[in-house]
């Protein structure tokens, strides 16, 4: 055991993109390790990002493992560390340790339709697996995305979503009516009920605020999705990422190790502590 589990590796921010402006800004960061690294992740895993002097924050890796040139993170400005990240510029250096957690069992889904359902920043954890499925399109059935945010300004990956429209069904939504926006008006679970995706030979992945996840799952069940067909990710506050600091548990599970990816069949057996 020579590795120090708390020691981050240095990485340079090579690209920053402002995804969402306003009072709840989101930026996407692409990073490259300064020294060659054996860091290799699976879709659904996270990494602990460090800003020296500020601390650490656990962030989902939003790039696909197929992308070898950089690691991508999409981050909502919410507190100390995420604010410091938002103040950084291209060329600045951060620390990264990980990857942590389990991953989406995408190999098991070959031949199946995949329905992605996201709300707000919740598209970030899905984005990695979506990109992998898209790159290996021939392996999967129909791919579709239902995604919503408060306003059209709050959608992340706006340009990428426009491009994706040529490749898969994309159903966007906003919470309240907006001039010049013709997308569905209402919450994500309502959009799911409205679009009536078929459960046949399908897997659904849903990420977003806890309350959205709860109602999306109900909407999916209503449509006939079985618990084993529904996947989601859990975000509990994290510090160590390796099951030692004792903070992120739901029941006997440490989300940093045993999660963050769960099928509803599994998650529903755990206490409601997320």
């Amino acid at each position: 055991m020579n590795e120090n589990i708390y020691l981050p590796k240095l990485a340079k921010i090579i690209k920053i993109k402002q995804e969402v402006s306003g009072s709840r800004p989101i930026k996407t960061f692409r990073t490259q390790f300064l020294e060659s690294s054996d860091f290799s992740h699976r879709s659904g895993q996270c990494a602990m990002l460090s800003v020296l002097g500020k601390g650490e924050a656990m962030i989902s890796i939003s790039s696909s493992p197929l992308e070898k040139d950089y690691l991508q993170f999409s981050i909502l400005k919410s507190g100390r560390v995420t604010t410091a990240l938002h103040e950084m510029e291209e060329g600045d250096i951060i620390g990264i340790r990980g990857p942590y957690g389990n991953h989406f069992p995408i190999e098991k889904w070959k031949g199946k339709n995949i329905l992605f359902i996201g709300g707000g920043i919740g598209l970030a954890p899905i984005w990695s697996v979506l990109q992998t499925a898209r790159a290996k399109k021939a392996d999967y059935g129909k791919l579709a995305l239902i995604y919503g945010a408060r306003t059209s300004n709050d959608w992340v990956f706006k340009e990428e979503l426009q491009e994706l429209k040529n490749e898969m069904d994309i159903h966007l939504s906003i919470d309240c009516e907006e001039e010049g926006c013709n997308e569905f008006v209402g919450f994500v679970p309502q959009n799911v009920a409205d679009k009536k995706p078929s459960p046949k030979n399908s897997i659904s992945i849903t990420c977003g605020p806890p309350i959205m996840i709860k109602f999306v799952i109900e909407a999916l069940q209503e449509l006939g999705f079985k618990d084993e067909q529904i996947y989601t990710t859990v975000e509990n506050k994290m510090k160590c990422g390796i099951g030692k600091c004792g903070r992120c548990n739901i029941g006997k599970h440490y989300v940093c190790k045993d999660g963050p990816v769960y099928s509803w069949a599994e998650l529903k057996t755990l206490p409601q502590e997320y």
Binding site: G53, G55, K239, C240, K244, G246
Partner: peptide, 11 residues
């Protein structure tokens, strides 16, 4: 037996 901890930066 309690082992829970916090990690933070001190400047």
């Amino acid at each position: 037996t309690c082992h829970c901890f916090d990690i933070s930066d001190e400047v």
